[in-house]
Design a protein around this nucleic acid. Structure first.
Lengths: 140, 140
DNA sequence: ATAATTGCAAAGCGTTTGCACCCTG
DNA sequence: CAGGGTGCAAACGCTTTGCAATTAT
């Protein structure tokens, strides 16, 4: 089953067997304008002619997240959101109105962080930053 | 039922009736070295002689969170963590080893954020930042 | 052929809710 | 006395898991 070389090889390189349903999940995620839950993806796939089980969607998202192919966000309590992100360190601009997500690159707060946490004797290693506000469309 | 003036009046000022179980929940939370889930608090209270229902703990934490008396953190997926924080804007230094939480004050990344999000046409309004690393004790 | 993957349905968990009783104001 | 607060247990919704059938290499 070819039809989708780039995505398939991306999976293969990550040591994930590129099955039909995994590609479907990945495609569905790619089409989401903002991050989506497992149930969202499942519903989206069911709308079409796709035959994928809910459990498979959960398993797939967990696997892809573990392999770093998708990112797991936790802004909503009670359910996990997933998003297909570009590579490298970045943060998210989350629109409070349309819930769209944009990536904010060029994060240079590490030096600031290191300085700020020094008085605490705290050794900063990583951080998460999410920004809420209005995207260009919704601000208009 | 006096015995706990400061906490009680703090609740009263927030328009929350200072009942016995609300004070118990608040005290339990104050004694937690790091943030705790509703179930954590419930278990802690049950260890003692306190007679508080689980539902009450959930309702209380939700109410206190809504009133800004406790903060709701979402680092763990699947369950909501709560923490009794000082006032004002601040962030958290979360120790990856002991899971202790320290408050990081003096957050001045807003100007940086505003600048960074401008090219996106994004209007930043608020943000969340959590820093992971090692606290002074664990780094030693 | 062999081992991984999938689907279904049941089980698990954290959380919420209905309702009668209790307590506070 | 009136109305919010509480406790219990049942109901919920999201997620995980057991197991037999299916599919990929």
């Amino acid at each position: 089953m070819p039809a989708d070389e780039p995505t398939a090889s991306r999976l293969a390189k990550a040591g994930v067997r590129p099955t039909q349903q995994r590609l479907l999940v990945l495609h569905a995620l790619a089409e989401e304008p903002h991050d989506a839950t497992a149930q969202d993806i499942y519903a989206r796939l069911r709308e079409g002619e796709a035959r994928v089980g809910l459990a498979t969607v959960y398993r797939t998202l967990a696997l892809l997240s573990e392999r770093g192919i998708v990112h797991e966000l936790a802004h909503r309590a009670g359910e996990t959101c997933y998003r297909l992100c570009g590579p490298g360190h970045h943060h998210h601009l989350v629109c409070s109105s349309c819930h769209g997500v944009e990536e904010l690159r060029g994060c240079d707060i590490d030096p600031w962080l290191a300085r700020a946490s020094r008085p605490h004797g705290f050794l900063a290693r990583s951080h998460t930053l999410e920004v809420y506000g209005l995207c260009a469309k919704c601000a208009a």
